[in-house]
């Protein structure tokens, strides 16, 4: 499916220009950071530094950095500036900013990749069928797509989450299960509803691109020939149309990962996430203490920017190498 010509194009573009190299290096670092977060983290990212005398809401057991004791019924807020213990300081509930930065990469990348995959699985067959059959099928399917596009993606996502709530899915951590990272959380919450919702608001782009490809491929000589031999439409779609429309779909997918990371972060910032480990959620929390502890909001934002930049650079690289004719601004 990926021809040698494509491979050599990719290599050539990579060796000729600087930006794809930077993008690749950045993305590899972020992926490694996300995978090995439990080994690189210095603190349990979910453990708070609150101390409550009553101990009901925030049990104080085992909080090595709970140094102040609040008076009866009061909650003491333990926040420290960057020190050797907490290299990037702690947030307003006493959690380690550096460790949360690492775990935030996991949430962003997982939602980005899973969401894009789901959008692809819905959108590509939809678009291919629409473009290949044409006529009434195409008209009907494209009106559905138009209706989806009548809502700005973020607004539709908000409406869907308003309806379905925001349930997280607990994903067990392999490192902790293997006993390699003691003291780290056994499982981390991934925003399940949000992942489905971002797929539901972005699949239309895949449908549109796949449709455009199918429309032009269905008139190619080899497709006509296959049809004249009596090959079924299903086989033609799977064997001819799909493989030949992959290039622009791959380019779009790479850009969509970045778009979805931004949507997830925005939803989390607006308070609709389902996981407290999201970078967006952390920025929202940092907003309350922006004046006194600006690093709480600053650090996770740098994470988002670096992740999105690296993916955008890679998307540009794919686009330049695979097909210089397609527009890269489909978002």
């Amino acid at each position: 499916m990926i021809s040698d010509r494509v491979k050599s194009n990719l290599k050539q573009t990579l060796s000729e220009s600087l930006l794809p190299k930077i993008g690749l290096l950045l993305l590899v670092s972020i992926v490694l950071m996300a995978i090995f977060a439990p080994l690189l983290a210095t603190h349990d990212p979910t453990r708070t530094g609150y101390y409550s005398e009553q101990g009901s809401e925030y049990p104080p057991i085992g909080h090595e950095y709970t140094t102040q004791v609040a008076s009866e019924g009061e909650i003491a807020e333990i926040t420290v500036e960057p020190t050797s213990e907490h290299v990037l300081g702690t947030n307003n509930v006493g959690q380690d900013v550096y460790s949360r930065f690492l775990y935030g990469a996991r949430v962003s990348l997982l939602v980005g990749i899973l969401g894009t995959t789901m959008a692809l699985v819905i959108g590509v067959p939809f678009g291919l069928i629409s473009g290949y059959y044409g006529g009434r099928v195409d008209d009907g399917l494209m009106r559905i797509a138009d209706t989806m596009l009548a809502f700005p993606a973020l607004v539709l996502a908000l409406a869907l989450i308003g309806v379905f709530g925001e349930s997280p899915v607990m994903v067990p951590d392999p490192f902790v299960m293997a006993g390699l990272a003691d003291g780290m959380p056994e499982s981390i919450p991934i925003p399940g509803t949000v992942t489905i919702v971002v797929a539901l608001v972005t699949w239309v782009w895949f449908a549109r691109v796949a449709r455009g490809e199918a429309l032009s491929i269905r008139n190619e000589e080899y497709v006509k020939a296959a049809r004249s031999f009596g090959t079924s439409n299903r086989t033609i779609l799977l064997k001819h149309v799909l493989p030949n429309s992959l290039t622009p779909i791959i380019v779009l997918a790479s850009i969509q990962v970045a778009t979805i990371i931004l949507i997830e972060a925005s939803l989390a910032y607006l308070g609709f996430s389902g996981t407290t480990l999201s970078w967006g959620y952390e920025i929202e929390r940092g907003q309350d203490v922006l004046r006194t502890r600006p690093w709480v909001a600053m650090i996770p934002g740098i994470g988002i920017v670096l992740a999105v930049i690296s993916i955008n650079l890679l998307g540009d690289w794919f686009r330049d190498a695979l097909d210089p004719n397609i527009e890269g601004e489909a978002r």
Binding site: S266, G280, G286, Q287, M298, V308
Partner: peptide, 18 residues
């Protein structure tokens, strides 16, 4: 322009406020 399309606007807003 690369930075501009990659920066979440809520974070940019907070940094401008800061």
């Amino acid at each position: 322009s690369l930075l501009g399309i990659s920066t979440p606007n809520f974070w940019l807003g907070l940094m401008l406020i800061l």
